[in-house]
Design a protein around this nucleic acid. Sequence first.
DNA 1: CGATCAATTGAGAATAATCAATTGGCGTGG
DNA 2: CCACGCCAATTGATTATTCTCAATTGATCG
Lengths: 249, 249
Amino acid sequence: MNTVTSTATARHDLIEAQETRRERQRITDMLALVAERVPVQRRVVHAGDAIYRSGDAFTHLYLQNTGCCKVVNSAADGRAQMVGLLFRGDWLGFDGIAGGRFRCDAVALDTGEVWALRYDALVAACAEHPPLMALLHAEMSRVIGRDRDALMALTTLSADARVAEFLRLVAHALDSRGLRNDQITLRMTRAEIGNYLGLTLESVSRALSRLARAQLIGFADGARREIRIPDVSALADFVGHDGAGVALQ
Amino acid sequence: MNTVTSTATARHDLIEAQETRRERQRITDMLALVAERVPVQRRVVHAGDAIYRSGDAFTHLYLQNTGCCKVVNSAADGRAQMVGLLFRGDWLGFDGIAGGRFRCDAVALDTGEVWALRYDALVAACAEHPPLMALLHAEMSRVIGRDRDALMALTTLSADARVAEFLRLVAHALDSRGLRNDQITLRMTRAEIGNYLGLTLESVSRALSRLARAQLIGFADGARREIRIPDVSALADFVGHDGAGVALQ
DNA sequence: CGATCAATTGAGAATAATCAATTGGCGTGG
DNA sequence: CCACGCCAATTGATTATTCTCAATTGATCG
């Protein structure tokens, strides 16, 4: 690596670190503001617990405080698909506002705490305290932007790049929540990851093997659920370049 | 078709018709409420005009009054993808709230009228008139639900089924806006449809040819831009069944 | 009438799915 | 403690689907 590149990389890393710090602060501030202004019902959930289910009447929004959960969309014809993976500071349940019923299942992936907020109380608090309303709108906006990025990843990326992008996203999410991001423990099976990414479990397994062979990731345990990511930006580069056709062996 | 089936179909059609009527009323009421409570800047757009562009500062939300437009997401690495197709009564620009800048381009597909609403004025009006706030939240929620359905269609459906689902969706959108839905004029090229559905233009063309061969659709003009849909529910059935593996010749 | 652009269609290549066999962890009960 | 069964993951062989490349047709417009 030459001097120019390493300087550019160092500057880039610095910007990344600032970004991350801001993001952590944003989440902390958000949780504090909500706790201060809205009655919160704290609920401990364990892996597999449903936070809400498709068809349930919409009365509450939820805010993940610790742990993580998945959101699964179910179609009338029986197709089911994971459409979101959420961490500390992420909101759940916006899909229920429009029709008065939830349209997805939200299921905890590990032990954590979820805050339940009565929607009517939240709206009342928003009316009294405009910054809270701005926050709520921004969070809905964030979900919309994130879903669109996910949509784009599905249509434009190869199987390997999709898996790499998934790992990159998880690493980034953990990082911006103050957790170590060089090693991630997947609380999802290959089948679940595949469902999320529109791939079969075998394709996910093969993609992970290829990424490991290319040294972009490494496995930290025997069961291959712990994934080391020595260099997140290398993974990001791969996602960009593989889109343009550079494939792994 | 036997009696049982035709009775069931008739009842189903009746429910569909009620649903459609409610939906039309909802859109009419929404436009009236917004026009009454918020200063609206009406803007006539023509095919190809940008309503907003990625990177533009977020100051307004937009509401499509007539015509239709597409929303295109652009990634940092140059990938671009259409992520939405909008009609009368659809809102645009929610993606800009979170970061203060738009993250997509919105481009008119035909001549139409778009209402521009200052976001701060809208928020102020919402504070004064709670039903308007409920409406705004419901619209954001609707976008989230719709995006997730699109995500699911991409990962679970074959090329033929994706194209069929796209046509079904457009027909339904036109129907719920009081326009004829037995014949639709696509204002998008095969390449644009393909981009939206994660397919190449050739795959879209082949899928349309196969759907036509199966009599699920027909072409009404020489250029094959006008598509007849004799029976929307047959198309919906195909989407459901093809997901389970029944393919066309 | 020719130029241009969109659409179609075919042949072959590439990617991911499917089917099938095997390995490896992990927990349970002998 | 070890054997067993179970589940997740991997890997290989084959098939199917979609993409890519290429040629052709058709419509539209100056």
